[in-house]
């Protein structure tokens, strides 16, 4: 049996006396699209930050493909094949769109910290970056500074640089937050396209997106996962309905 793409074992996090994540166990199989939902303040983003090494955890264990991530810095975790996006757009605003993508390719293309090669001389690198721009529909914006793009375009770029490095576990933190309906559709299509054959873990508030994309859903409430399963099972789960989903679904209609 192959190791889970990502496995959380009794993960905990406290800020001072307040325990935000209270023992999360979760196993995500390779190739699975897994959504984490939950009310505001449930600790979804904190959970992301713990997995990706942005914050140190207070207890428990995170493993990526069976390798323990304890004590690893974000860049080391990224090199092991896990890449993430952020809830608040996190790109390189002063650099061109093309540069943004090219920078996200450098490590995975093996350039490391080299200062004896010219990036512009590598046709392979340029082609790969252009291919990603094509995929995220930003070819027309190639040479603009990323900071001047529209919000939806910046989100698309963020997803582009998240998956550019070729990581096989992709974590997206609210990829459609603050978007209009048509923009959301565009991003959902994009996510579906770029995460093919990869493991996707996402936090999302938009139930339409969640039920459209996810193979599995976990519901996080007050730092604990109260249910995990197929979308229809989670939807039918009375505990979930009580805690969260009912209210959210009612809001939608």
């Amino acid at each position: 049996m192959t190791a889970a793409a990502l496995e959380l074992d009794g993960l905990r996090k406290s800020f001072g006396k307040t325990e935000i994540i209270r023992g999360v166990n979760l196993s995500i199989a390779p190739g699975e699209r897994h959504a984490i939902i939950g009310p505001n303040g449930a600790g979804k983003s904190t959970l992301f930050n713990l997995i990706t090494g942005r914050f140190p955890n207070s207890g428990g264990k995170v493993s990526l493909h069976g390798n323990d991530l304890a004590g690893k810095a974000p860049f080391e975790i990224n090199r092991m094949g896990l890449s993430r996006s952020f809830q608040i757009t996190n790109i390189f605003p002063k650099m061109s769109v093309f540069e943004n993508v090219r920078c996200s390719l450098l490590w995975s293309k093996g350039y490391k910290y080299s200062f004896w090669t010219m990036v512009s001389k590598s046709q392979d690198l340029t082609d790969a970056a252009d291919a990603i721009l094509e995929q995220i529909n930003l070819t027309a914006r190639r040479d603009l500074p990323a900071g001047v793009l529209s919000y939806a375009e910046q989100r698309a770029l963020e997803i582009g640089i998240t998956m550019a490095g070729g990581a096989d576990v992709i974590m997206l933190d609210e990829p459609t937050a603050g978007m209009s309906h048509s923009e959301t559709d565009y991003i959902v299509d994009l996510i579906r396209k770029v995460t093919e054959n990869k493991t996707l873990i996402m936090v999302e508030h938009d139930m339409g997106v969640v039920f459209g994309l996810a193979d599995y859903i976990s519901v996080l409430v007050y730092g604990e996962i109260i249910a995990t399963g197929r979308p229809e099972e989670v939807r039918a789960n009375p505990k979930v309905q009580e805690a969260y989903l009912g209210a959210a679904l009612e809001e939608e209609h």
Partner: peptide, 8 residues
Amino acid sequence: ERAEFLGY
């Protein structure tokens, strides 16, 4: 921070 999450 973003650079760190790109492997650098």
